[in-house]
Design a protein around this nucleic acid. Sequence first.
DNA 1: AATGAATGAGTGTTCATTCAT
DNA 2: AATGAATGAACACTCATTCAT
Lengths: 212, 212, 212, 212
Amino acid sequence: MSDGFTRSDRKRAERIALLERSAAKIFAQKGFEATSFDDVALTLDLRGPSLYHYFASKEDLFLGCIRRSATEVFARLDAIVSDTNLVSGPRVTLEALFREQILIEIRDYPEFVPLFFRLLIPVPTLQSEVLQIRRNHAALFERITLLALGSQTSLASDDRVRLEIAFGALSYLPSWYRPEGALAPEELANRMARHLVDVVVPVDRFTTGSIV
Amino acid sequence: MSDGFTRSDRKRAERIALLERSAAKIFAQKGFEATSFDDVALTLDLRGPSLYHYFASKEDLFLGCIRRSATEVFARLDAIVSDTNLVSGPRVTLEALFREQILIEIRDYPEFVPLFFRLLIPVPTLQSEVLQIRRNHAALFERITLLALGSQTSLASDDRVRLEIAFGALSYLPSWYRPEGALAPEELANRMARHLVDVVVPVDRFTTGSIV
Amino acid sequence: MSDGFTRSDRKRAERIALLERSAAKIFAQKGFEATSFDDVALTLDLRGPSLYHYFASKEDLFLGCIRRSATEVFARLDAIVSDTNLVSGPRVTLEALFREQILIEIRDYPEFVPLFFRLLIPVPTLQSEVLQIRRNHAALFERITLLALGSQTSLASDDRVRLEIAFGALSYLPSWYRPEGALAPEELANRMARHLVDVVVPVDRFTTGSIV
Amino acid sequence: MSDGFTRSDRKRAERIALLERSAAKIFAQKGFEATSFDDVALTLDLRGPSLYHYFASKEDLFLGCIRRSATEVFARLDAIVSDTNLVSGPRVTLEALFREQILIEIRDYPEFVPLFFRLLIPVPTLQSEVLQIRRNHAALFERITLLALGSQTSLASDDRVRLEIAFGALSYLPSWYRPEGALAPEELANRMARHLVDVVVPVDRFTTGSIV
DNA sequence: AATGAATGAGTGTTCATTCAT
DNA sequence: AATGAATGAACACTCATTCAT
């Protein structure tokens, strides 16, 4: 009845997960170049070279970080789409999506935005991996936006501008929001998501499916 | 009646200006750590150590960069405020401000956003200098926004969120806009500025100064 | 009636033999420093640290290699001496010795020459062990040469030079001979051995024991 | 009346020459991998990283070493060929060539043989550079040998074997010759060169141009 | 017996900074 | 003013070796 994974396999996977999460935070904080192997290793009471048991290189470590982060974040966003899409119409889905994204950024994965939207990465391979993830992320929001706008093909020039405004707002959020302030993360997520939907799909543009 | 500046003083100041502008672009492109003294010096056909005739350290060079950039950008934004404020009311001023900021970002100072909104700077001193400039920059927009909203004291929670949405849009703009595309910078500036004003000062909120 | 060796002892000895032979080839190919424990271990599907069950250190592994190689090679050369010496006179023995040495080098133990004549070994202990083996090897040829020359005490200065020419030829052989070429190893061995005898014991110098 | 080289250029060139010669000796002694930048730098009272003012990498340093050595050695051998060729016939030239090569090896450039004939170099680029130099070196001797043998096209199989015997003797020479011994370098060169010519161009094979 | 984990020592390389010229 | 020369500090990466399992 073995699942093919020995206990040591699991231990190792956990270790890797811990390291990748730790590294994601440090990379997000200090940038790719300024993050050293010792920085990452010391968070688990290891010495720098020990990381080579788990990652073949600094690039490899970074790849692990962003892939794990992306996977976890996409899982949450995809779940939102699945849960709300058919029930309540695309406008509601889009708002829920914004809300979820906001919570991810300021409550659950503070390293998400720095990692994917701020880091300057001197390695082309990694740079394009990051860009690909960003493209996938944008595509998800764009898909729902298209549905909500009722357009069938692609975004009009002005629609795109407004969507990019929303993206900008999202990527800027961790730069100013402080959870210690008056607004709880959930409260902010509710309000800001509403605003963003209004920006991306102005009320006069929204074509409710039900109305004739 | 000398002005106290010798010819060599002027030469030196010009040299410094050139270096700072050059450095600003390189810092913006590669980040603080990845930018070397040689990188900067070579753009003026100098060798790295020569920069020490003009800057006491890498930090000092960076400081010069951001202060010069900030000065130049603030000059343009201040000019907009002075030119339009009294004539046409704060809403128009705000829109003009957005327009100007957009042109600065995508046409005239492409290094502005990377320098002040994306760079991870490992030196606390520099980090806070950048933050201070950001704060000043935000304060300018906030002042006009307050006027346009008719509030007299400070921004309400929701107003702040909408203003931050606009800031986000502005700081994200260089990440997606390509001047080679269909939209000329000026055209984009016009459209986007209008959208941003709508976000920050919704029409139903705008209190025209003229109406009693 | 056990011989004092358990089955596991034999297994272990076999394992060691395999490892030493494997290591000899790798050392010969890549040099002492460039050969890692993992390199050697992987040839037997082991991991690097496992070698410590068989060898106390890298030096120890290397020692094992060269001692085993030396033993095997000396056995073959000694056999030649025993087989041919009394029967046909020292000149024939010397030629057979050269022939055997050549076959060892290019057909049976390609690692012999690299291991003992080319490797730079940064450990003095190992270096002198190698030198000792080389000295023994040379002594064997020198003994037979002395017999063939009819001298009784030691080599004259010129005789030594000619013998070293032969040694040089032997140690250089693997650097140029390619078995894929026109000459089969055995054919080359025959021809080259004859030349070498001519060099070391010129015909006019050879004192046949039988002739009055 | 400038020759286009400033004083600092000359200083630099001298520094590089010193470093390359020093490095050649150390490389020859310890091998490529075991030679560190610090090893080389310390011989000139420098620290390791200082070498990067003169060489872009370890490979570059090594390349410099072998090219300089090759150039200097080839100059001497070429000079011999030019000086003796027409005057005394190819057999004499060949003997002079052997003599010169021997003096190079044991008196003037002790690092020549280790550098080109013993080192294991883990970098393919460097490996092939070394091989190319070896090929050029061999080609020089082969050319004169062909002349001395009177063959017009290429070496017969047996001629080649005898030439390789000579090459082997030459590459082995530094392994056994000690200048402290009874034989002065020049004396050894004379004797050994004569032997080598006898090996490569046996008297009965030598076709004197003048004799009918 | 075998090995994953861990590490200290070492190496090539980069770079801000100093200094003499 | 400009720069070659030099270096200490830092860093990614390798590897022989130890140890617990």
